[in-house]
């Protein structure tokens, strides 16, 4: 008994000594700032910053290649923590969230044919440009849902994606996967937005979709702050100029201009 305790204990002591010495001799030098920054980052490895995961971004920030605000997933609190670690001052940037610029659910938008292929928007769009009659509409097969590293998107009962603004960090992973390009980032304070991506003229839009923007320019004319511009038959609201009065939503003949955020 005693012999076993002594021999095993001795063995453990010698090996531990070896490990201790090795850890001193072969120690990898790490930058404490990198570690500290990696500690506060969200850790989702979403790739929104353009670097290979959060570790890559932490290194880039510590070496001054990029700014802490480039982390799309970090809220203002995390950016502030990074700024504190780096000892710099950061101007507050506003959080952005993703919005779906299409309301063409299968009730509203006509279908060209019955699709029975792969359940993925990027594959579905290869078949005759998608099964929906509008060539700009959401296909509803959830490539954005699969792309979201934060679980912020789900396909709603109408077959259109719904974004959970609490979970959305604005990293833009979903935007890169959408074959239609109908996902866009909006500042969270923007009050109204126009959820249609069609570049067609009013007549063509009316033929295929009930909730499509006809590009009638009424909103543009009625806006008291000249916050609306129109390009390629798509009206856009400038968040800086918009006062949130809601005149556009009231005047829109199709009543498609919507409140962007609940808060």
């Amino acid at each position: 008994m005693l012999a076993a305790v002594i021999s095993l204990g001795g063995l453990a002591f010698i090996l531990a000594l070896g490990l201790g010495v090795a850890s001193k001799i072969f120690a990898v030098e790490t930058d404490p700032t990198v570690e500290a920054i990696a500690e506060v980052l969200p850790g989702a490895n979403c790739g929104g910053c353009g670097y290979a995961g959060c570790a890559g971004f932490a290194e880039a920030v510590a070496s001054g290649q990029t700014a802490p605000t480039e982390c799309k997933a970090a809220g203002s609190d995390i950016v502030a923590q990074m700024a504190q670690i780096l000892g710099v001052k950061i101007e507050e940037t506003e959080k952005k969230v993703v919005k779906i610029f299409c309301q063409g659910s299968s009730d509203n938008c006509k279908s060209k044919f019955l699709y029975e292929g792969v359940f993925d928007c990027r594959a579905a769009v290869l078949l005759g440009g998608g099964y929906k009659a509008c060539p700009y509409s959401c296909l509803g097969y959830g490539s954005c849902v699969k792309a979201c590293p934060f679980g912020a998107i789900e396909i709603g009962p109408k077959g259109l994606p719904i974004v959970d603004e609490q979970k959305c960090t604005g990293c833009g992973s979903c935007i890169r996967q959408c074959p239609r390009g109908i996902l866009r980032l909006l500042p969270i304070s923007q009050k109204y937005y126009i959820p249609c991506s069609s570049k067609d003229k009013g007549k063509a839009v009316r033929q295929v979709c009930q909730t499509g923007c006809l590009a009638c320019k009424l909103c543009l004319k009625k806006c008291p702050n000249q916050a609306i511009t129109i390009e390629n038959n798509q009206p856009r609201i400038d968040a800086q100029k918009c006062s949130g009065c809601g005149v556009c939503a009231e005047k829109c003949p199709k009543k498609i201009i919507q409140l962007a955020s609940n808060g």
């Binding site: 292929g117 792969v118 993925d120 990027r122 594959a123 290869l126 078949l127």
Partner: peptide
């Protein structure tokens, strides 16, 4: 399986 369609997607990507 819809092999050709998914392979077509992969090739185009």
């Amino acid at each position: 399986r819809h092999l050709v369609q998914i392979i077509k997607y992969g090739k185009s990507a």
